[in-house]
Design a protein around this nucleic acid. Structure first.
Lengths: 108, 108
DNA sequence: CGCATATTTGGCTAAACTTACAAATAAGCA
DNA sequence: TGCTTATTTGTAAGTTTAGCCAAATATGCG
């Protein structure tokens, strides 16, 4: 594999890693459904320390998934890309496929 | 957030984590393009120790993304789901969006 | 059976990730 | 300015992950 391909997979990996955490998936889900939210709202939603949530948001931002907008003393985050629906549909289909498979195994 | 939602995000996270590694993304890409491959082929492709590749494959299998089929002394892996294209399209659009943004920043 | 090949697993180390608390920064308001 | 609130950052501890080598397992073949 050449350097260009390696860079391609590294770039993809950064995005996948940013999404590979329950709190961050929850945040993305909420932002997709409801538009922008401040850190304080997301902190309450996630239920972790605000510093932890802030770091989760920094990671999503670093991957280019969200963008922030400071207004007054609050910082609002929103999605930067619109395609997340397709991505989650795929993940969900894997989840469902796994569930079906588990049921099939149980019924043997 | 209730227990059901928590389980939902945990299940999604498992799948995202399984895909959050350059070697595993490469493997999935190749399997999507070329169908099944044995561990030996994938080992050469990835360029790591066979034991490492075997563990990558185990993780993909554990997440329900691939399935294995032992024939003789070789084990063949193939994708278990077909939706990966949509998922990669999304990731790629984030990558491209990031690249465009970087260019825009550079040209300021 | 005895040997070679393909794959997985055990064990270990180094690196990365997650998290909370405390301290620093920034903005609004009296 | 001094105080309060919102957010980020420094730091440290605990957990997870990645990687390799060596050993175990499984299959095929003479």
């Amino acid at each position: 594999m050449n350097a260009k391909d390696r860079a391609k997979y590294q770039a993809r990996t950064k995005i996948m890693k940013a999404l590979a955490h329950p709190a961050r998936l929850l945040i993305v889900d909420v932002l997709a459904a409801e538009g922008e939210r401040c850190v304080c709202d997301l902190t309450e939603l996630v239920g972790s320390d605000m510093s932890t949530v802030s770091r989760h948001l920094a990671q999503l931002k670093g991957a280019g998934i969200v963008e922030d907008d400071k207004r007054g003393q609050m910082v609002f985050y929103k999605l930067r890309v619109k395609c997340l629906t397709g991505l989650f549909n795929c993940i969900e289909s894997v989840v469902k496929c796994n569930a079906n498979h588990s049921l099939a195994v149980l019924s043997n």
